[in-house]
Design a protein around this nucleic acid. Sequence first.
DNA 1: CTTCAATCGAGACCGTGTATCACTTGGTTC
DNA 2: GAACCAAGTGATACACGGTCTCGATTGAAG
Lengths: 145, 145
Amino acid sequence: MPDLTALETAFETAGHRLTRPRRALAELIDARDGAFSAADLVADAQGRRLGIGRATIFRAIELLEEIGALERIDLPTGEHAYVPCGPAHHHHVVCRRCSRSVEIGDLGLGALARDIARKTGYQIDVHRLELFGLCPDCRLASVPA
Amino acid sequence: MPDLTALETAFETAGHRLTRPRRALAELIDARDGAFSAADLVADAQGRRLGIGRATIFRAIELLEEIGALERIDLPTGEHAYVPCGPAHHHHVVCRRCSRSVEIGDLGLGALARDIARKTGYQIDVHRLELFGLCPDCRLASVPA
DNA sequence: CTTCAATCGAGACCGTGTATCACTTGGTTC
DNA sequence: GAACCAAGTGATACACGGTCTCGATTGAAG
Ligand SMILES: [Zn+2]
Ligand SMILES: [Zn+2]
Ligand SMILES: [Zn+2]
Ligand SMILES: [Zn+2]
């Protein structure tokens, strides 16, 4: 079974079955190239007349999130989006127009968190940093003059 | 009408009516002292037999958020919580057990965001940093031995 | 005290996400 | 490759956060 995509191998190496719906969803996600909502995937699947049930899509998202191949992003609007990524600690910069995103490393945030812990007395277990704006392409496109 | 709380004055100075439901909700929020969910407020209101409708509670939350007197926090579970705060740019550290939160300043994040913008080519408009852990009280309480 | 736009409460509604359950299937065993 | 069976699937009902509508109220201005 060659030519497994990153998401497909993620399923396998985590000890889960590589089923037809999961393969199809991995392909849909790859085709998106950026952050997407669950509704996006549902629409994609229905548009291509794959017979994939809604519940299956949510289950796949949940599973990929547990595996660490997908991460939930909380958009400024309050909606949830998901973005494919590796398991190492990192953060995301997301384009508010086309949803393409890039990962950035911790960039000293771990140290900052420790500093905050010292100052506030809180024991800090998790932190999340998300940045939103315009990717280079959309930035150019939005300044037509 | 002296003795207006911070939330009450926030309604007024933003040019909105200071109605009985809004006063009651401001009081409920103050009594909570920490982050809370919309469902929390609904339960509080019903518990005290105030005749406040659910829609009114959501509308008040939305309005306070627009005003800048309340901020939405995205808990690691994906649930939404709200925390009272001032309008200046800041971030929150939230206790995962009791929900008490403290504000922290930007702490060099603005500079970090500019740095990220330079490296990624993204134009960064908004960023959000949220930290979760245990407040001093809950930290002590969780280590009984 | 009037007046009326802002606000309210009730309830229908919508979208996201979960639970249930009978049916199917991937992967392993022989 | 046929048998096996736990993992997975799809249809559907459900739970829940949040919004919309609309007729009834009310804050606060004059
Ligand atoms: Zn873009
Ligand atoms: Zn980090
Ligand atoms: Zn605490
Ligand atoms: Zn900041």
